[in-house]
Design a protein around this nucleic acid. Structure first.
Lengths: 264, 264
DNA sequence: ATACACTGTTTCATATTATGAAACTTACCG
DNA sequence: CGGTAAGTTTCATAATATGAAACAGTGTAT
């Protein structure tokens, strides 16, 4: 661990949507470092465009970070392959479509095709969401080794905090939902994360047949998980499978065939 | 300048879409540093999620960078305010819509609503493009102080390199185009950056009445700058003005009124 | 089968360099 | 005009990043 690099990265992590601009003294105070040290670090970050300085001398995250995302592995390997397929899906359903990857006990939104109504808030790309109360998150959980799900949520009641009255807050309740999802092949989110938001999600697998993320259809129409569910779910599942194939995933039947052949 | 921080940032800049994964030795050789030093730096970046390690031990840019973009100043102040307006624009024209900010002699794409055909390639968000041969770039140039345009392109023939046979490669030629754009209020890109891509762009101003970026409509249909031009151009111009207002821009007539009042 | 070449990782003394106190500069407010 | 608080610069020293070398794995070739 190189201390000065760690400090520089901590500075980058200090900025938030609520506080996109920070002054030198605020930064140094928050991180408990001297003004001079913070200043040196900021100057270095400034030079490389990771930080920008405003007219009022305050500091903010620089545009370089936006440019860097084009080279992030998941964007190259997953997003760029999935984007055209997700676009097709969005065209057929007229709702927002999301692509997410698992990151520990959360899911990170890496691509979105958002309807006008959704965009009244900011785009979801770059946001994290919990696994247990979103369609995309539950799609990951449903196809994760059961012991990992237990490790995350069993005997940890605070790990299943309620976002809305619809959030599944019991481990058993969650397990049942995941079992149902597994047999159906898709997940349903009935306002479990956000009120009046209904989603259908499906898991995405990689070349090792492990879940790496999920995609979903999301919107304000309750019929998404009602009258439209059959059509929409087969759409997400198909899209997720296509994406999985592009990631090198070999569908189960084939791997069973291969197993049989290997057994002979 | 803190050397170790600079080296860490140089490591981050080493990754590209063509090479999203790099080995330790490649990194250390390219940057002329010892394996051990690179290893220490990478470990620190790893700890903070800026770098991820693959199964084959190679390194790649981490997901944290995607999450960071939500806090970048232009995304908070410009993108999030502009997104719903751009969505409306996209709905009316059925072509790709882009939002860009100026970054020196280039333009950075920070938001996009892309049509299926465009998405056969990757999303443009995070890409840079030159100012002189794109609708968005020329919209910035047209409303920049003329001396700045001269500084960038006058007596520098190599600064106007041709991307296609349609690229404006003469300074005089560019100036004429910018003058025409200024009086119309919008710019036209007739395959100047990419063959078979036609765009209409309009400038975005901030609270100091300075150009900070531009938005555009872009597509493969030649009629975008033909039969559909009148409708599309008034659409982008209107959208760009709305975005400018949200940035604190005061339309010119009002500022003239204020000047007159100040003069009394 | 064995040795070689190539990875990435760890260790450690020392030479480099980041640090923090203080002084300097600006700007703002009373 | 004087005082406070901001950012910036300087500099000696204490801290720490560095690079050599040795270690540990992997795969390849002899």
């Amino acid at each position: 661990m190189i201390a000065s690099v760690a400090k520089a990265l901590e500075i980058l992590n200090l900025f938030s949507t609520a506080e996109p601009c920070l002054t030198l003294t605020t930064i140094s105070k928050r991180l408990g470092m001297h003004k001079s040290t913070a200043h040196h670090l900021l100057n270095t970050l400034l030079q490389y465009g990771f930080i920008e300085q405003q007219a009022d001398d305050s500091y903010a995250l620089g545009k370089t970070i936006i440019a860097l995302t084009q080279n992030v592995l998941v964007n190259v390997e997953l997003r760029d392959r999935a984007a055209p397929l997700l676009r097709e899906l969005a065209d057929t359903c007229n709702e927002s479509v999301y692509l997410t990857v698992r990151d520990g006990d959360r899911v990170l939104y890496i691509y979105a095709i958002e309807s006008s109504q959704r965009l009244l808030a900011r785009t979801a790309v770059g946001d994290y969401a919990p696994l247990y109360c979103t369609a995309v998150g539950k799609a990951v959980l449903a196809f994760l080794p059961p012991e990992e799900v237990s490790r995350l949520y069993a005997d940890r009641p605070d790990s299943l905090a309620a976002f809305t009255p619809h959030t599944l807050t019991g481990f058993r309740q969650l397990q049942d939902d995941l079992a149902r999802s597994r047999s159906r092949g898709y997940t349903v989110d009935n306002q479990e994360h956000e009120l009046n938001t209904f989603c259908v999600g499906a898991p995405i697998f990689d070349a090792h047949n492990a879940v790496i993320g999920a995609c979903s259809i999301s919107g304000l129409d309750a019929e998404i998980i009602g009258a439209r569910l059959e059509a929409l779910s087969s759409g997400v599942v198909y899209t997720a499978q296509q994406i999985s194939r592009r990631m090198g995933y070999v569908p189960e039947r084939m791997s069973m065939v291969r197993q049989n052949m290997a057994g002979k």
